[in-house]
Simulated scan of single mutants.
Amino acid sequence: MQRPEAWPRPHPGEGAAAAQAGGPAPPARTGEPAGLRLQEPSLYTIKAVFILDNDGHRLLAKYYDETFPSLKEQMAFEKNVFNKTSRTDSEIAFFGGMTIIYKSSIDLFLYVVGSSHENELMLMSVLTCLFESLSHVLRKNVEKRWLLENMDGAFLVLDEIVDGGVILESDPQQVIQKVNFRADDSSLTEQSVAQVLQSAKEQIKWSLLK
């Protein structure tokens, strides 16, 4: 994977050196978190997953922590990320103290966001799982039109991969099986409700005929 020159990974200790020198910390730009903080290793690996169209408009997004607590901050972040990645051939970027893994498909851009210290291969495994699972759900048509028509299935896929920022599954076959099971279970529930309603109608009809 090639790292874009415009997005160098921040060097550890840069903020501390500036503080010791008495200089002010550089101001955060719009769409970037206020500052970088050292974090302990955690199961909460994923900060966000989102899918944009080829104009940078949000189609699907889930944020799993308070790095961008408001919708306005999220949209500004997504715009900045899209502007930096939409014209590059790389798969990885470092921006605002975060590691961003991304992939394009026809008229979609898929992004997985983690902190700067997260394992890039782990984030890539989540993105690969998401793409391959969506490819199955969308019958290999990973594009805007089919995504919009199958948004419920897309959210089911994402929920099976990541929950609250914790990676649950990175095997697309397992994700597909679980999504199919949940879809079948939902269908059975709807069918059961329909059967109950039909039975009630029959009972009412026979009671009126008596």
Score class of each variant (00 low, 15 high):
149 E>N: 14
208 L>P: 00
35 G>S: 10
111 Y>P: 06
121 L>G: 07
159 D>G: 07
62 K>I: 05
145 R>L: 15
14 E>M: 09
157 V>W: 01
137 V>F: 10
32 E>M: 13
158 L>H: 09
147 L>Q: 12
58 R>L: 07
181 F>V: 07
156 L>F: 12
181 F>N: 08
117 H>T: 11
20 Q>V: 02
102 Y>I: 03
14 E>P: 00
152 D>F: 13
79 K>S: 09
186 S>K: 14
84 K>V: 05
119 N>G: 08
8 P>C: 08
55 D>W: 05
121 L>E: 13
167 I>P: 00
119 N>M: 06
109 F>L: 09
130 L>E: 13
27 P>L: 11
138 L>S: 09
85 T>Q: 04
26 P>I: 01
149 E>P: 00
130 L>V: 15
145 R>M: 14
11 H>A: 06
152 D>A: 14
33 P>Y: 10
71 L>M: 05
7 W>T: 14
25 A>E: 08
93 A>K: 01
79 K>Q: 08
133 S>C: 15
49 V>I: 15
115 S>H: 13
150 N>D: 12
141 N>H: 15
35 G>K: 08
182 R>M: 11
139 R>P: 00
89 D>C: 02
119 N>F: 02
108 L>V: 04
32 E>K: 03
5 E>P: 00
188 L>E: 12
118 E>K: 05
73 E>Q: 14
67 T>Y: 06
41 P>E: 12
127 L>I: 07
50 F>A: 02
1 M>V: 06
32 E>W: 11
83 N>Y: 06
36 L>P: 02
162 V>L: 04
146 W>Y: 15
31 G>W: 07
78 E>N: 02
195 Q>N: 10
173 Q>S: 10
104 S>K: 11
44 Y>S: 05
13 G>F: 06
5 E>Q: 08
135 S>I: 13
73 E>S: 11
18 A>S: 10
1 M>T: 04
123 L>C: 05
100 I>Q: 01
143 E>K: 15
46 I>W: 02
93 A>G: 05
162 V>D: 05
135 S>T: 01
